[in-house]
Design a protein around this nucleic acid. Structure first.
Lengths: 277, 277
DNA sequence: AAACGCAATTTCGCAATGCGGAACTAAGAG
DNA sequence: CTCTTAGTTCCGCATTGCGAAATTGCGTTT
């Protein structure tokens, strides 16, 4: 299901962009920390409980190393050991980190009223996401009081490959970064790559011509959405907005002619607010 | 405001319980990982943006070390660097961890209906917390539709020293652990320690005689609450429930005679559910 | 402009620290 | 009682992280 191992990401994280780069050690990069965090990441919402062995398999790290890392994380409270199952699960301190992320993210307060307005107008839900590897993480979320469906929580992930949000991100990314990510997507799912690629390229065109991207049943067959990127003025990473709903509620046509342009407008408005610091 | 440095915690985390222990190295403990996480922790909700210097001061780590750790965390996406400010802030991947915590915590789904029921009955809010150092982190939260006040989000922290929840935790903890924590509390706030200590001891008595603890305006002057601990059957850490509201809404008398006993009952109910796995 | 203060990064030699293959122990399953 | 599968301990090696001090970089001040 997942990529063979997450070691690839660690390897890439160390190197400069150069694909030719030999294993020149980055004396600045703290391997042990990266590996420890990799262990924490292994605990996805579906993999609630993991033993050392499973973690070793999931991360591609040697057993003794995993053993030491889980030992450390447990002492710090980030992991909790269950005697009954002989497995670890995530502890509350990890949650506190997430809360700090949200409460420190100024853009959320700025954007929320605008997002809510569009959500109410469209009867759909509007979200703000930030990238993590090949996913987008929801950092803000508004839905119309009408909408009953599509409940995604803050902190949850959607793939960049097939969502309108993801395509908006890719379209706005500098060429080199985009290709880097697309390489990974291709590698992870060679089967569907041709269609995925086509969707991304359509997204790039849509973004160039109209300022927003679309996904019509391409992420989940009964969900439609549009996406718009926001490129911050300082060097910080691109954020992405979307507006989406079940397909019976939001037709392709309405997205294209009405919601898409409005989302673009909304993002321009938020950008202005951000400019005022 | 905070403890001088968080290095104390790291030191303790390595050692066995023994207070006499000299710095016998724990070859199992990965220092670099612990330090890296300590850097992330420095980003509390109030300290949104931090430079290397500030992090060094907050964590008590040497500057070059901090520099390497922030470098690593940035490459991994857990921190983001703002050119404009020359400071770091937390990135979305940290949020994803928090989400995984919540979605994996089975007890939440089990307990929620019961918590909601009591919240509705009492017109107050009911929460479930788990300890992180000297705080309790809210991992589940229900409030009556009536209650307008006291909005605390999942992942936020309250001190164990002065809250009903905290006292319930301390009361249920084994002697040695309790004293260990109380030492820290005393050290952190010697000024108020006499009153704090008195409150904790009252909590221990209350818990022994009635099964719940109280805090009447001792955390925030206009907030009252009761707390009940839940000791899991496997070795995993104690969880704590509370029920609280602004003091005008929930009198001491009502807490003592009505809400407290009901909360105890509720927790017994949840414990039974947990037993059924 | 030059000089100053302040913060962040780089340097660099040292040894502490993290590493992982292999051996060992523990706990089920057949 | 063996066979498998998970987890820990050993232990020598060299990688890797360490931190004092020097260096760079930036924004003020004189």
């Amino acid at each position: 299901m997942t990529t063979g191992s997450s070691t690839e990401w660690l390897a890439r994280a160390r190197e400069e962009g150069g694909p030719s780069g030999e294993p020149k050690r980055d004396r600045q990069f703290v391997e042990a920390l990266a590996r420890g965090l990799e262990v924490l990441r292994a605990f996805q919402p579906n993999h609630a409980q993991l033993g050392n062995q499973e973690i070793a398999r999931a991360t591609g790290l040697p057993k003794p190393t995993v053993s030491r890392l889980t030992y450390t994380l447990t002492k710090l409270g980030y992991l909790t050991y269950s005697e009954r199952l002989g497995k670890y699960h995530l502890g509350a301190p990890a949650l506190a980190l997430g809360y700090a992320v949200l409460s420190n993210m100024g853009i959320r307060q700025l954007a929320r009223p605008h997002m809510q307005e569009l959500a109410d107008y469209s009867g759909a839900s509007v979200a703000l996401g930030s990238r993590d590897r090949l996913n987008l993480i929801y950092v803000e979320y508004c839905r119309s009081n009408a909408a009953v469906t599509l409940r995604l929580d803050l902190g949850s992930k959607v793939p960049i490959a097939t969502t309108s949000m993801g395509r908006a991100l890719l379209a706005a990314l500098p060429e080199s970064e985009r290709e880097h990510l697309m390489d990974f997507i291709a590698k992870r799912d060679p089967e569907r790559w041709p269609q995925i690629r086509a969707g991304i390229e359509r997204g790039i065109e849509d973004y160039a011509s109209r300022g927003f991207t679309m996904s019509i049943g391409e992420w989940k067959s009964d969900v439609n959405g549009v996406g718009v990127p926001m490129i911050p003025s300082d060097g910080s990473p691109i954020m992405v907005f979307n507006c989406g709903a079940p397909s019976f509620q939001l037709s392709r046509d309405r997205l294209e002619t009405d919601i898409g342009p409005r989302l673009v407008n909304m993002v321009r408005g938020v950008e202005v607010l951000l400019g005022h610091h």
